[in-house]
Design a protein around this nucleic acid. Structure first.
Lengths: 254, 254
DNA sequence: ACACTAGTTCCATTTTATGCAACTTTAGGC
DNA sequence: GCCTAAAGTTGCATAAAATGGAACTAGTGT
């Protein structure tokens, strides 16, 4: 296996729960010899992929990674615009928001926008969710045809919880509902006590698609606020689509 | 040279002016054989460091890079807090702001916060400035001793413009001024028509330092607004320092 | 259909990574 | 301050990989 894959594995360690790595941490997480971990971290450090925290032996991603990430958002008009929309909704409502993408059968957050409410959902980036078992994922699946969705799950699907679709048939039913409404709801499905609404937007030019998502405590948000969020998301996604030159405008709410 | 360095070079291509790369671009930018560039991009793609845009042959940084970047911001309490402060000032004043770090003798923006005014300074992340020839850089240099600064420039310095310090002696004079005021001013030094104010904040735990910076059109901001910005920056930096456990509070303005 | 450009694959050679063990450094405990 | 244990680094032979030239393939425009 190339050292590139090892380096990628190291970067993958940085996520929701892990913000820094030592040689020993790396040994444990990747199951490689100590000597190797030592040289791997050094090589990554010298390449700029990692940096040490102060002058300790703990490592975190390097500035190079930051610059590249910022460039990513620039490169994608879709992600950039979606992030702007979600940032605004997040600021207006005080709830946490995400922009996510479909990677195979998983959804990964691409930008996060922490809310401002005292009780808000804490951003959990790096955590990948199964597309079929998350509102965001179903919003993205709704852009595909039933046949394409079936092709994604040649061996059937494993539901993440009893609130998630238990079979492909049920998934297709719920995805059809999402297509009808334009919005995908998730009720305490991925995280206890947390509801979410997601709307998908795609770039007709490249076929790239993202989901705009707002998450909030289930107990604290009444129906009228949910409707407000729904309207903001639908209109925001419509703005994104329009800006990218969609001829047939997506659903919009007034 | 390890493939890791090649991969880092590829990521470094993504910056202010370049948001996507093809095999041929890579050949030109890195000066490597075509066969190599082809395999390099594929390896990076398979490792998750790159992804193709839609189903074209153009590449941009992968989601892995995004996740790591977000983790980076999380891991650095200092950067996170500084970013929050600058975001607030940016929102309040409408001007663009940055948080930057010193990398060797250069300053690199770590987060950016675009302003909201019609005439605002456009964020230019990825662009590295020489520390001695930028207000932000001198704010960071001001945290070091004169001897340390001299050690950074064993061969003297090359001024970026005639508004920048022309010698180490002049640099030290201006840095001393920054130490006295607590704020570092830049007047149309890095970019024509653009003024900036920077204040440094450091983490006493790790010794890590960042600069908080607000940039604005020189012609449009009157003296009283400049004072307001200065006050916000100083107080913000003091808040950051206090939150990280600085015992001797930095300069604060009321 | 043709020429042209971009991208990929093949293959022998060179360079780099690997894993073990020995060695050095760092951090606590007394 | 000395001893010990844990963390980290380095040396070396082997195994694996990257490299660059050239041949090959896939698109693009005329």
């Amino acid at each position: 296996m190339s050292i590139l894959n090892s380096a990628a594995s190291v970067l993958r360690c940085f996520g929701a729960d892990c913000t820094e790595l030592t040689v020993t941490d790396t040994v444990e997480k990747l199951g490689i010899p100590k000597s190797n971990a030592s040289r791997l971290l050094r090589a990554m450090r010298e390449a700029g992929l990692l940096e040490t925290i102060g002058d300790t032996k703990r490592h975190r991603p390097g500035v190079l990674v930051l610059d590249a990430a910022i460039s990513y958002r620039r490169s994608s008009g879709l992600v950039q615009r979606a992030a702007d929309v979600v940032a605004r909704i997040s600021a207006d409502t005080g709830h946490t928001g995400y922009v996510s993408k479909l990677i195979g059968t998983e959804v990964a957050a691409v930008t996060d926008h922490p809310g401002t409410h005292a009780l808000r959902v804490v951003s959990n980036i790096g955590r990948r969710l199964e597309a079929h078992s998350s509102g965001t994922g179903r919003a993205l699946l709704a852009l595909m045809s039933d046949a394409q969705i079936r092709a994604l799950y040649p061996e059937g699907l494993v539901p993440a919880s009893d609130l998630s679709p238990q079979s492909i048939e049920e998934l297709l039913t719920r995805v059809a509902e999402v297509r009808r409404l334009g919005v995908s709801y998730s009720r305490q499905e991925s995280t206890r006590g947390v509801d979410a609404q997601s709307v998908a937007a795609s770039d007709p030019e490249t076929g790239e698609a993202v989901a705009l998502c707002i998450v909030y405590p289930a107990a604290l948000v009444a129906d009228d606020e949910r409707l407000t969020i729904e309207r903001m998301l639908l209109n925001g996604a419509a703005d994104v689509a329009a800006a990218l030159g969609h001829t047939t405008p997506t659903k919009r709410r007034v």
